[in-house]
Design a protein around this nucleic acid. Structure first.
Lengths: 341, 341
DNA sequence: ACCACGTGGTTATACGTATAAGCATGTGTA
DNA sequence: TACACATGCTTATACGTATAACCACGTGGT
């Protein structure tokens, strides 16, 4: 209850209590294969550790071994949505299984060398970060600070590091292809105005354009902020055109935007999917609660991220290096057709 | 480009290059007040550190000083939603400003001593975790491993640690009071069946009951899983009752559930809010996209969590201890009335 | 009787850093 | 001239751990 000014128990304390040397304690508690310690002694050591509530000092260990067991996951934007949450859980479990400690460390505002310096202080054994934050100098700094594996994630491969990619173009392509299959000919794609989303929006737009081009169509680009008034204005602008010039198939970047747009369309008396077919992305649970139910591109990462974790592990133990440009895993997309298209 | 087997630069390397002792390097780079080092020497040291790309070794420092500067944030469920994301950002910034490093470390499946042991290995200077995971033994272990501040968060204060509380009862109370104000007399509240949500659901239910009781009403408890079929069944069950027995005001735990329920109600031809008024919680952006627009309880934490961070900081530097039972911050709630009620 | 060898430990050391204590200088004061 | 004292460094040490190297002792083989 009262403040305990007693310093944490060390392996030396355990050794003293068990009546052995500190080295023996280390051998027993890590049970190093090949260490020759009698059964009875082992028991005494473990018991002493237990009664003292001994917890090894990760810093001391990492200092001694030169390896930290820390895998740093640096997200520049706090994860939102069940999809990412699930991926995180899986990643964490997979790394833990292999004896690493996955730690999430933002330094959200920083990038490049500044961020890398902060990360490197912890001497992680691997760093996973959004590809765009991994500048050449940053990667160099990390490497030279002892990081064995640097992995980027996000759009597209990188010439600097191995990556786990989300192919935004494919998402757009799937959506546009689907809209065309449903008989739509005048396609549009939303690109969010929000910094941080625009880049991805452009990637999805590019994919949509590619698919459209292959079918002899074009895609109208519509920049939109996540705001009801803007959405209403965009819809009004469409309605003021000649009927033959109005888009009849819209890929709304994601489900949030799709829901925003759907409410604006219905408010304006535009029939969905009668007048305009709508497709989102993310397959949010809420996508099933709109009327009409929302068509969406479902995005999911390969189950336990086995490929990525295994590759990082191999790189850490220096069995197989991670090659710059290499793609470690690729997010899977599938179109879930519902009533809005 | 090729693998650099050169080990990371240490302060000794910097010292050698600058032609001074390692101690001087330490004095200069930390610029310790009271350290007597000439301007010219300082310059040389900094330059040497720069050219070598020196990055201090956090583990070595923590080993030497006995303090890590690490604040561990342990979330048992990966954060989802913009609200939590914002809080995280603020927390991280606030701690960083005071020289700490906020690190998110799950060990999601563990609780009690097992989790505490994992956390303690990193010798964090503070641990913030869901209150229910902080058993008495866990808190003891953390304290004895040198953690200066242990903070719980979640429902209600705790006799074991200082807490940052989310008052679920108040949420329920606000919602129920509002439904009553809108003329509803037969109230119901949803309690999610999902493990991990149920506890919070019960808290919100309790609050709703309290508010109802004060107004001479009762609240019907409805256990529901996040599933369309279950929602449809629940609605069907209501409709099979005598009209006078059907609930006319429902607090749906949160906006997700409210949207689920709204779609089930509308599918069944029940008018919202005509027959049934509906209120959610979280004030999701999507709450404005349903028709009718969803009434919701908005939940937000006191701006930069100044109170919490300041208190933890003070406890770390042993200026003012954190008292068990103390409440460091309390989440604010407000009802946002829209068209569904 | 001697060596070889397995068993069960111990002793010593290094990892990178912070900091107390010491040691040369120079400079002003009596 | 001698002394106090400030300035600008250096030397030495400890933090807690892992591990290489060494040592004592018994046992079996020749």
């Amino acid at each position: 209850m009262t403040d305990t000014p007693t310093r944490p128990a060390t392996s030396v304390d355990v050794a003293r209590l068990a009546g052995v040397s500190q080295a023996t304690v280390s051998y027993v508690l890590n049970d190093r294969p090949g260490a020759r310690v009698g059964e009875e002694t082992r028991r005494r050591v473990r018991e002493a550790a237990e009664t003292l509530g001994y917890v090894p000092h990760a810093s001391a260990r990492s200092l001694r071994t030169g390896r930290s067991g820390l895998v740093l996951l640096a997200l520049s934007v706090a994860p939102t949505g069940r999809l990412v949450a699930g991926i995180l859980d899986d990643l964490e479990a997979a790394f833990r299984e292999r004896g690493y400690t996955l730690v999430q460390y933002g330094e959200r505002r920083l990038r490049g060398v500044t961020a890398a310096r902060a990360w490197a202080e912890l001497r992680p054994v691997a760093v996973i970060a959004e590809t765009y934050r991994l500048t050449e100098a940053a990667v160099r700094l990390l490497r030279s600070s002892g990081v064995r594996a640097v992995v980027g994630f996000g759009e597209g491969p990188s010439p600097l590091v191995a990556t786990s990619v989300i192919d935004h173009a494919e998402i757009g392509s799937l959506a546009a292809g689907h809209l065309h299959d449903r008989g739509r000919r005048r396609l549009a794609a939303i690109v969010p105005k929000e910094e941080g989303l625009r880049k991805m929006g452009l990637g999805r737009l590019r994919g949509a354009e590619r698919a459209a081009e292959a079918r002899g169509l074009t895609v109208e680009r519509v920049d939109l902020a996540f705001d009801e008034d803007e959405a209403a204005a965009a819809v009004a602008a469409w309605r003021s055109r000649d009927p033959g010039e109005r888009p009849d198939g819209v890929f709304a970047y994601n489900d949030d935007y799709a829901m925003l747009l759907m409410s604006a369309l219905l408010d304006a008396g535009v029939a969905v999917p009668g007048d305009v077919a709508l497709a989102g992305c993310d397959d949010l649970p809420q996508a099933r609660f709109t009327r009409p139910r929302l068509t969406s591109v479902r995005v999911e990462s390969p189950p336990p991220d086995a490929g990525l974790v295994a590759a990082v592990d191999a790189a850490i133990r220096q069995e197989r290096p991670l090659n710059p440009g290499e793609v470690l895993s690729r997010v899977q997309c599938a179109l879930i057709a519902r009533d809005s298209s």
